[in-house]
């Protein structure tokens, strides 16, 4: 029998690249106009947290933690709808332009803040990476700061006798490991898909949105001072890297032969004919 597990899941709101909203004509993104969504990898991390809770003792609980501008609270409501118990957002203008090291610092200070109230973590789940930064660095950087056991690229796990038994992706295959708690686990997108919102969760969110007292209890909004984070280690001052230049990638410019405005049969016929030698070389007999 496993003990009650105190579980945290770190999530992030990212620009929604599924729609064209906010994409400028020159291919750059207007982040203010772009739609927002839960980082797709974090949906897998949320499911992992929910699965872990089911493996723990009856008083196991999950707290979702995020960092971002106030509207990012939307993903915390989303988490509660899926059955996450509590949530906390770190929101502060001084966090703008944080790179991964500054982000990892701010999130670990937030985790320490919530741990002081809700007890030390047994498990911290993160998505493998975000779709806007793509670095996969923040999870391991938090491990380094907080000295948590690190398991990355996890695609399945069990908690037995208060140990994590996880399967993780490695180059050319997979590896099974046994690891001590407390652990931070980053979840790959080969993990189980996030289940539907629960009826109870949806009702709870309605109540939270209606009642300010309940909201304060279950969706906490904090700033850098609350979690005792040093300003100098956040945002631009706390980021060891900067973007010094960006430039547009030159297009090959007209070398693409376009086929359009005809029937599908004709369009495909043109392309297949022009390239028939190459196609025949590799087509199955």
């Amino acid at each position: 029998m496993n003990k009650d597990l105190n579980i945290y899941v770190l999530i992030k709101q990212v620009p929604d690249t599924r729609s064209k909203a906010g994409v400028n004509a020159d291919g750059t993104i207007d982040r203010a106009k772009a739609g927002k969504m839960l980082n797709p990898f974090d949906a897998f991390a949320m499911q992992a947290a929910i699965d872990a809770k089911a493996m723990g003792g009856p008083n196991s609980k999950i707290t979702a933690v995020t960092m971002g501008p106030p509207p990012a609270i939307a993903i915390l409501y989303q988490a509660l709808e899926h059955g996450i118990d509590k949530a906390c957002i770190l929101s502060d203008r001084k966090l703008a332009a944080s790179d991964t090291l500054a982000t990892a610092y701010a999130l670990s200070m937030t985790l320490e803040y919530v741990q002081a109230k809700d007890g030390p973590a047994d498990l911290v789940f993160c998505g493998l990476q975000t779709t806007d930064g793509d670095t996969a660095q923040v999870g391991p950087e938090i491990c380094e700061r907080m000295d948590l056991t690190q398991i990355t690229y996890c695609e399945g796990f069990e908690i037995r006798d208060n140990l994590v038994h996880a399967r993780k992706v490695i180059e050319g295959g997979a590896m099974e490991v046994e690891a001590d708690l407390p652990a931070l686990i980053t979840i790959a997108n080969s993990y189980n898909r996030l289940e539907h919102k629960t009826f109870r969760g949806a009702k709870f969110v309605q109540e939270v949105k209606r009642n300010e007292a309940i909201q304060k209890q279950f969706v906490e909004i904090i700033d850098l001072a609350d979690c005792k984070a040093e300003d100098s280690r956040c945002g631009l001052p706390g980021s060891p890297t900067i973007v010094s230049a960006t430039w547009k990638i030159g297009t090959v410019g007209g070398s693409c032969k376009m086929h359009q405005g005809k029937s599908v049969e004709e369009l495909v016929g043109e392309v297949v004919n022009i390239n028939q030698e190459t196609i025949k070389e590799f087509a199955k007999a």
Partner: peptide
């Protein structure tokens, strides 16, 4: 289309089946 060699503007759910049948026929 700025860096492909050939670009077909169309619905892939129509273009791909047509491509399959033309490649099979060509063989």
């Amino acid at each position: 289309f700025s860096f492909a060699h050939h670009g077909i503007v169309g619905d892939l759910f129509h273009v791909i089946p047509e491509m399959i049948s033309q490649i099979k026929a060509s063989k």
